[in-house]
Every structure is written in structure tokens, then in C-alpha cells.
Design a protein around this nucleic acid. Structure first.
Length: 802
RNA sequence: GCUCUUGUGGCGGAAUAGGUAGACGCGCUGGACUCAAAAUCCAGUGAUUUAAUAUCAUGUGGGUUCGAGUCCCACCAAGAGCACCA
């Protein structure tokens, strides 16, 4: 068998017959299957891509055979830093590099036999596509959902460029090793925080896997608590948010953010200016994550000359700077109760601050007595004036009520999720279609002037001041104000690559529309994405951004549903054979092309589906891959045993019906490995026989087809049947999947001692009699008294003796 | 640090609602076929034990139950994400 030839033959057949191209409409029910479109890197397709694409391909092929109009599209998420870096190095326009990578990826996907509808292909870097990304940004702006703010970024003074948190890990620039500092930049923001509650509620209208929902919920990070106003002695005030208002009498100091507004306002009254300014400088060197780690949260200094007043009792307490409080998150200040919060406790220890225990029940000299320990166990307040003696739960209510009554506090929900920083100081992204005019301020471009194309130049070195490379291209930057016609400058930041991927699934529904990003009719026809698969690493962020984008479009009437994705699942990674993430530096990378050349696409597909639990990471193992090749070879060899016959062999009938049921169920429930296993069992059963019928073989090939589409088509054609891709999925007869005789275990005192054979649904009494008469069971019961017998029909018998 | 996930043979992994732990595959051992090899086929393969036997086994320690890989509590270990990598 020449696998290569066979695979090419069928790939051409599908292409020529446009087997997988779909129309919007028709009699068949629509079904939309989506895999995350890849970033087309120069390295080519990863075996990890093959895993998830094969899984979704199997679903797509099965659904088609069951009579659905299946949309299974593919495209390219092609903006991003690697293409830009490549362009800087080689002085070619990134669009050239990207074009090449896309060709490679597409070729690889074709050789793997994925049933994508290529007629709907696009890249986020196509002007016809990013025109609409820009258009949608303008809608955000026009609905007051986009604004400018000063946000600190990681800045490498030597490379003169903005770094991602990853590239700034450990506080040094990954490229040159220089210490990274925080630098403020004016950035476009999208008001995502205002959608927090809707994004939380919207999860009820989805069928996301539990762990995916959990990821979303945790990212949004809702907590209910109290926002408290705190007065400063001598004028001024700030607010703090707390979920533990019951500990208010335990406040012994406040901590404010060194990078916040408040400290700037207070500066004129600060007595130890030098110390405070030094600490602020120190903080600039740290990333947010370095700052918020518990073990690093003890640095800081007192803000001398400033005292804050605890609103409940008028007590004056000191104010400290601490870098674990972030200036751009929450209110930029926290109340500190060292007796009841471990981080406050350690901070207080380090700075020799007072501690007041206000909840009774545990000694607080060594560690704080925290809420996870005192909540819900009836602990009572101490040292808390009129609230002393109340339980924590009572006190929470009573103290909140009093503060609200005093007009100094409000019950609020707080969300961890912040607004979306939408600017990047990069070349290779969608230009933000905004223009700055000295007279009119920020003015949006006219929609009819979109797309705003990236300039066609080949130099993208970053500028010295952290501005985007675009800022150096003056002929591109200088323009006229759309409002007053005077001279004006374009925004030179570009969008993050999350932008293009936030709505691409909508475009697939109507990929060639040049009037709208997608027509309402097309979106109504397909409805939601029925099944979306991607990596676990995207379940929090990409998915949240996409949902936010869709909810916004829904609110302004441009999409038919508030949630456009119904089911979302995520796959585990394919690791190297040493159980580590594949990477060039570790030398454990497997190139799918090599595997396809040596073993064939079908073998690779079957192996990746068989290699383990789809949702978990799995290490590559070439020996196991060979096992899958052997399985396919065995299926091929079965051809020699085929005799005429249009029915299933009598002794295979039950197993065939069971296998149809199992493969169908498992393919729809992420059980790809057990589906393959069931097919192996059926194959082995056929192999044991001297001959099988044509129909036996035909059904095996059909069941295997979603996983190994090429070889099954070829063998099927040899039998003289119509192509499987144009046929129907076999139906199973439920009654034939049930055995009439069952072997069950008999336990004595919970330990397995024997086996009996019973007929299905046999009476309990009769089962028990068989169990008691079993020779081995008898041995164990000799001379003992039966205390109790448990008979679970069709499952097990347990005899309890004494 | 926070959040999540996962711990089952030599390995990848099965085990639908608490009911015969180890399906299926890999690897290994022995055998058949062959001049030989590859391929293929047959048998065996959790540990301890003298052969049938029995005992012990699902990260550790408890608990619930007639019965726990599965449920509950406490712990240990590994991996992933944490807002400018995509």
C-alpha cells in the first residue's frame, strides 16, 4: 500500500469535489465547529495543532455523515511580535514573512487531510479583514467604551523598547539583561471592567466545560465587600475596599500605592520626602507580579506627617507606602489589620507596628487569624466597642449598616478584572484609526476611509522614546483632521493581537462580505459557534476578550446573540518524549511533516487521538505511534478475509452495534482515545475470524473514517462502495448492544472471591442462590454466619459474614 | 503568593451514577515462521509467594460505606495560567 499516493489521491478528490465547502442555508441543520486559528509562525505546524485539529475534524466528519451542514473553517491570526522581529532582522515587510508561513501551514494542513472549508479562509492581516477590526474599534470609541489613560509599561532603557511581562521576567530585559523600569505611557483602553457582571452572568448561557467557566470566573474575580471612605488629618481623603469589614477595629495602619495618585497629592505635606521618593523609585523597577507576591510584600516606608482616621472610632493611625498595593488597581489603598491578615501581619512585624486582635478564637502572636479560619465557625468579636460579643457574621452586617448610615461606606462588588489596555508600541498590528488634532483633540477617522493601511516600508526599528515604529514614518503620521481639516497626526500605536481574534469566528460565517463585517442573516443562520476548541492557555483571556467584544456588538445591535459561543473545550499539550514542553532549545521537537512522510497522515492522526486523555498533556512516544501504524496495517490486511455478504456476521453483530454506539458517543464526549480503543477491539475480533462479510468490513471502515479518512476511503472504494464522505453514519440497534448473559463478581466481606454467570435482569433470589452455591465462595463461608447479603442486579453480590 | 489541573503497572492510559482495578496500546520475556532479518502470528507480563493458593496494591494519612481509583477531611508532589508570548 502506498500511503502517500492514497492520501494525495483523496485530498485531491475532496478538493475537486468541494466536499467540505458549505453554503449558508439549505435543508440540513447547521452546525459550526471551530478550532482556534493558529499564529503562522516560521516554525511551521506543531504536533500540538494536529491533536486538536484532528479531534475537531473527526467531529466534523461524523456530523456531516449524520446529515448536518457543517461549517469547519480555518484562517490565520497573523499579527504579532515574531513576524516583526523577523522583519527587523531581515529587512523584509512582515506581510511577506507571514505570507510564506501561511503557505507552509496550509500545505501541512492539507497533507493531514483536515476537512476545512478553505473557501472562507482569511488572515487577520488582510486589509479586507482588519478594515472591520478598525471599524469595530471606532464603534467602541463612539459608544464611549474607548478612552486614553496613563499606564505603566515595562521599559528597557537599553533596547529602548516596551517589553511584555514575559520578556521582563525577573526584572531584567530578556534580550540584553538590562534592568527593566516601569514607564508611564498614554494608552488606549477599552472599558472591559464595566462588563464584568455581564460577562459573569453570560456564562449561564454557555455550555463551556466546567474548568473553562471556572477560569473565566476567577479572572473576573468578583468579591462582595464594603468601600470605606477614610479622612486624612488636616484635610483630604481616600477610599479602601475590604471584604472583612468586621475587622475594622483592628486597623492599625493604612497602606497606599507608591505609584498611585494619592501619594502625589500628599507630597507637599510629607516630612520624609527623600525616603518616600526613593521608595517610589525602587517600586518602578518591579513588575506587578513581583510586587504582589506574598513573600515579597514587606518592603515600604512610613509616610511621615500623614495620619489617617479610622471612621468607626476616630482613631488616628499611620499611613505607609507598600509596593504590594497597586496604583492602577482598586482604590490604590488598603486598610491593614495585622492580626487578621497574614500579609498585613508580616508587614507589621517588619515595620514594628501595633496589632489589635478583634476576633476571638486563636492566638495571633505568631500568625494572623484569617477569614478562611474564623468565618462560619461562630467566632465572636473582641476589642470592638459596641460590637464586641457579636458573631463575625452578625458584626459584618451591623458594622456595615452603621457605616452606611454614617455616610462613609457603601456595599459594593469589586472585580479583579481591569480595563483592557488596547495599545501596543509595535509596527505589526492593526493601526488604531484615531487622529490627534491640536484644535479638536482625538478625532476618529471617517468610517468610509477605512482600512487605514500599514505603510509599505521595510524598517521597523523601535524609536528611542518608546513610541511605536510607526511614529518615525512621518509621511504616514502626518495627515489632516477629519473634523476641521487642519494639520493633524495619526495615532501610532497599534492594536494587540487579541483584537483580530476577538471576532474572527463571526467573519467565518460570512467571510467575503464587503458591506459589513458579517451580515445579520448569516449570523442568524449559523447561530452560535456550536463547538469551539482551543488551548487551555486561552480559556481565560482570549475567550474573555472575545466574549466582551461580542457582548458589546450585541448591545449596539450588530450580532444576534449576547453569547456567540456555545460549547468550549480545551485540549492538553503534546509534550516532548522527555515530558517537557517541546522547544528548539531542548531538542525535543517533533515535526509533523517527518511523521507524515514516514508513517502517513492517518497514522499520525490516529496516534494523536489515541495517545491519552484529550484534556491532559501527553508526552510524545514514537513507539506508540508505530503501534497505531500496526493497527492501520491490520485493518488493511483484513481486506483479504472479506467474503460477499450484505449483513453483519452473526457472531460480530453485537460487538458491531456496541462499537457504533461507543465511537459515536466517545467522539462527541472528548473520548477519542477510547473510541480508537473500541475500533481496535472490533478489528481484533474480525482478525480472529477466518472470514468476514463485506458489510462487516464496510462498517469498520466507516467508523474509522473520521479518524483515518484516507486509507478508509481507499479500502472502501476497493469494495465498490460510494465514498464514505458522501455516505451516512451507520445506525445502531440499542437492543443489540445489550448482552443477555453477564458475568458478575461475588464478594465475601467486600473481597472478590468468585464469579457467576447470570442472565440479564435475573431475579435477586436466583442470583443469590447461584452466588451461595459457588464453590470458591462456599470455601470462604465455611463455619461462618451470614450477617447480610447485598445483591445489585447485573453488577455484584456481596455476602457479609461473621 | 493567588487560581486551576494532575498523581493508577516498566510506559501512555481504561474504569458511564460508589460495584470484578489495570480495557486498548507500547515495552519486555519466551516460542512459531525464516538461511537470516524485517514483517506477521502464538503465549506470558502489577508486586510478594512453593505450582493451584494467599496477601498487598490507584501519591501519603485518616473517615463514610456491605463495598472507595471514584465521596469527605488533612497533607505531600508535579505541571499550567497570572493581564504586552500567541
Amino acid at each position: 500500500m502506498n500511503y502517500k499516493q492514497i492520501e494525495e489521491k483523496w485530498q485531491n478528490y475532496w478538493k475537486e469535489h468541494k466536499t467540505f465547502e458549505v453554503e449558508n442555508g439549505g435543508e440540513k441543520p447547521p452546525y459550526y465547529i471551530l478550532v482556534e486559528f493558529p499564529y503562522p509562525s516560521g516554525d511551521g505546524l506543531h504536533v500540538g495543532h494536529v491533536r486538536s485539529y484532528t479531534a475537531q475534524d473527526a467531529i466534523a466528519r461524523l456530523k456531516r455523515m449524520q446529515g448536518y451542514n457543517v461549517l469547519f473553517p480555518m484562517g490565520w491570526d497573523a499579527f504579532g511580535a515574531p513576524a516583526e522581529q523577523y522583519a527587523i532582522k531581515n529587512h523584509v515587510h512582515p506581510s511577506e514573512a507571514v505570507k510564506k508561513s501561511i503557505q507552509t501551514f496550509k500545505k501541512q494542513m492539507e497533507t493531514l487531510g483536515f476537512s476545512f472549508d478553505w473557501s472562507r479562509e482569511f488572515a487577520t492581516t488582510d486589509p479586507e479583514y482588519y478594515k472591520w477590526t478598525q471599524w469595530q474599534f471606532l464603534q467602541f470609541y463612539k459608544h464611549k467604551m474607548a478612552y486614553k489613560a496613563n499606564i505603566p509599561v515595562n521599559w528597557c532603557p537599553k533596547c529602548k523598547s516596551v517589553l511584555s511581562n514575559e520578556d521582563a521576567a525577573g526584572g531584567v530585559c530578556e534580550r540584553c539583561g538590562t534592568e527593566v523600569v516601569q514607564k508611564e505611557k498614554s494608552q488606549w483602553m477599552l472599558k472591559m471592567a464595566s462588563y464584568a457582571e455581564d460577562l459573569l452572568k453570560g456564562l449561564d448561557d454557555t455550555n463551556f466545560a466546567e474548568r473553562v467557566k471556572l477560569g473565566q470566573i476567577n479572572w473576573i474575580g468578583k468579591s462582595n465587600g464594603v468601600e470605606l471612605d477614610v479622612q486624612i488629618v488636616g484635610g483630604g481623603s481616600f477610599s479602601v475596599f475590604t471584604t472583612c469589614i468586621e475587622t475594622i477595629y483592628g486597623i492599625t495602619f493604612f497602606v497606599i500605592a507608591p505609584d498611585g495618585k494619592l501619594i502625589k497629592e500628599l507630597m507637599p505635606r510629607v516630612e520624609n520626602k527623600e525616603e518616600v521618593l526613593n521608595y517610589i523609585e525602587e517600586t518602578k523597577k518591579k513588575s506587578n507580579m513581583d510586587r504582589t507576591e506574598l513573600n515579597k510584600g514587606k518592603t515600604g516606608c512610613e509616610v511621615k506627617g500623614i495620619k489617617a482616621i479610622n471612621p468607626i472610632n476616630g482613631k488616628e493611625v499611620p499611613v505607609y507606602l507598600g509596593d504590594f498595593v497597586l496604583g492602577d488597581y482598586g482604590t490604590g489603598a488598603v486598610m491593614a489589620v495585622p492580626s487578621h491578615d497574614e500579609r498585613d501581619f508580616e508587614y507589621a512585624k517588619a515595620h514594628h507596628l501595633e496589632m489589635i486582635q478583634v476576633i476571638d478564637g486563636k492566638d495571633t502572636t505568631e500568625h494572623a487569624f484569617e477569614k478562611q479560619d474564623y468565618l462560619g465557625v461562630g467566632c465572636k468579636l473582641i476589642n470592638s466597642s459596641e460590637f464586641t460579643g457579636l458573631t463575625v457574621e452578625e458584626a459584618k452586617k451591623a458594622i456595615t449598616a452603621k457605616l452606611v448610615d454614617m455616610g462613609v461606606a457603601r456595599e459594593v462588588s469589586n472585580y479583579k478584572m481591569r480595563d483592557w489596555i488596547f495599545s501596543r508600541q509595535r509596527f505589526w498590528g492593526e493601526p488604531i484609526p484615531m487622529i490627534y488634532c491640536d484644535k479638536c483633540g482625538w478625532v476618529p477617522m471617517n468610517e468610509e476611509d477605512l482600512p487605514l493601511l500599514l505603510p509599505d516600508v521595510a524598517e521597523y526599528e523601535p524609536s528611542d522614546d518608546g513610541e511605536s515604529p510607526l511614529s518615525k514614518i512621518s509621511e504616514w503620521v502626518n495627515t489632516t483632521c477629519p473634523k476641521c481639516g487642519g494639520p493633524a497626526r495619526r495615532e501610532t500605536d497599534t492594536m494587540p493581537n487579541w483584537a483580530g481574534s476577538s471576532w474572527y469566528f463571526l467573519r467565518f460565517m460570512d467571510a467575503h462580505n464587503d458591506k459589513e463585517f458579517a451580515s445579520m442573516d448569516a449570523m442568524k443562520y449559523w447561530g452560535k459557534v456550536d463547538w469551539y476548541n482551543g488551548g487551555m492557555e486561552h480559556t481565560a483571556r482570549h475567550l474573555l476578550y472575545a466574549r466582551f467584544w461580542v457582548q458589546f456588538l450585541y448591545n449596539i445591535g450588530l450580532v444576534p446573540n449576547k453569547e456567540m459561543i456555545w460549547t468550549r473545550v480545551s485540549h492538553g499539550m503534546v509534550l516532548g518524549s522527555n515530558n517537557e514542553k517541546m522547544s528548539k532549545s531542548k531538542g525535543n521537537v517533533i515535526n509533523p511533516d517527518d511523521i507524515v512522510n514516514e508513517y502517513g497522515a492517518d497514522t499520525l492522526r490516529v496516534y494523536e487521538m489515541f495517545m491519552g486523555d484529550y484534556q491532559q498533556d501527553a508526552p510524545w512516544n514514537t513507539d506508540s505511534l508505530r503501534g497505531c501504524k500496526r493497527f492501520i496495517d491490520k485493518v488493511v490486511r483484513l481486506k483479504e478475509k472479506v467474503m460477499d455478504g450484505n449483513n453483519y456476521s452473526k457472531d460480530l453483530e453485537s460487538l458491531i452495534h456496541k462499537t457504533i454506539k461507543k465511537v459515536e458517543y466517545d467522539t462527541y464526549h472528548l473520548g477519542y482515545n477510547t473510541a480508537i480503543s473500541a475500533l481496535m477491539i472490533l478489528t481484533n475480533a474480525m482478525d480472529e475470524k477466518d472470514s468476514i462479510t463485506k458489510e462487516d468490513y464496510h462498517v469498520l471502515l466507516t467508523l474509522l473514517n473520521p479518524y483515518a479518512p484516507h486509507i478508509t476511503e481507499e479500502l472502501n472504494e476497493m469494495l465498490g462502495y460510494a465514498p464514505i464522505c458522501e455516505s451516512s453514519w451507520p445506525k445502531y440497534d440499542e437492543s443489540k448492544t445489550v448482552d443477555s448473559e453477564i458475568t458478575i463478581g461475588v464478594q465475601v466481606n467486600g473481597k472478590l472471591r468468585g464469579e457467576i454467570t447470570i442472565s440479564k435482569d435475573e431475579e435477586k433470589d436466583s442470583i443469590l442462590e447461584k452466588a451461595l452455591n459457588n464453590e470458591k465462595v462456599k470455601n470462604f463461608m465455611e463455619g461462618k454466619e451470614i450477617v447480610k447479603t447485598i445483591v445489585i442486579p447485573n453488577k455484584i453480590v456481596n455476602i457479609v459474614i461473621k
